[in-house]
Amino acid sequence: MLTISDSLALGQLIRSERKRQQLTQEQLAAVAGVGVRFVRELESGKESCRLGLALAVLQTLGLTVSVAARGANS
Rank of each mutant, 00 (worst) to 15 (best):
L58F: 10
L55N: 06
L10Q: 06
T64D: 13
A69N: 08
G62V: 03
M1C: 07
E17G: 00
E47C: 01
R15C: 02
L13H: 09
L8W: 04
M1W: 03
A54Q: 12
A30H: 09
S48N: 15
R70A: 11
L42G: 09
L10W: 08
A68E: 11
R20K: 13
E26N: 10
A32F: 08
V36P: 02
D6Y: 04
L63I: 12
V57Q: 06
V39T: 06
L13S: 08
K46R: 15
Q22A: 10
L8V: 09
N73W: 03
Q27A: 14
V57N: 03
A9K: 14
Q22S: 08
F38L: 15
V34G: 07
R50F: 04
V31Q: 15
E26H: 05
A56I: 02
G11S: 07
L51G: 12
R37K: 15
L28Q: 10
V36E: 11
L10T: 05
A29Y: 09
E47M: 06
G62M: 05
R20W: 00
T24C: 02
G71V: 09
S48Q: 12
G33E: 08
R18A: 01
A56G: 05
I14P: 04
L13Y: 00
L51M: 15
C49M: 14
L13I: 05
V39A: 11
A72Y: 06
L8R: 15
L10D: 08
L10E: 05
G71D: 11
S5V: 14
C49F: 03
E17L: 01
L51Y: 14
T64H: 10
G45K: 12
L2C: 05
A72K: 15
L10A: 12
E26F: 00
T3I: 14
I14Y: 02
R50G: 07
E26Y: 02
G52M: 08
C49S: 13
T24A: 03
A56W: 01
R70Q: 14
S48L: 10
L42I: 11
A30P: 01
D6E: 03
Q59W: 08
A9H: 10
K46E: 04
R18Q: 03
Q22M: 04
L63T: 03
T3A: 08
R37H: 09
K46H: 11
S48E: 13
S66V: 07
C49H: 07
V65Q: 10
M1I: 10
Q12P: 00
E26A: 13
Q59Y: 07
L63Y: 02
L53W: 01
R50I: 07
L10C: 13
L2I: 15
V34R: 12
A56D: 11
E43C: 03
G71S: 07
A30N: 14
R20N: 12
E26R: 12
L23H: 06
R70K: 15
G71L: 09
V67E: 10
V31M: 09
G62Q: 06
V34W: 05
S16F: 01
V31R: 14
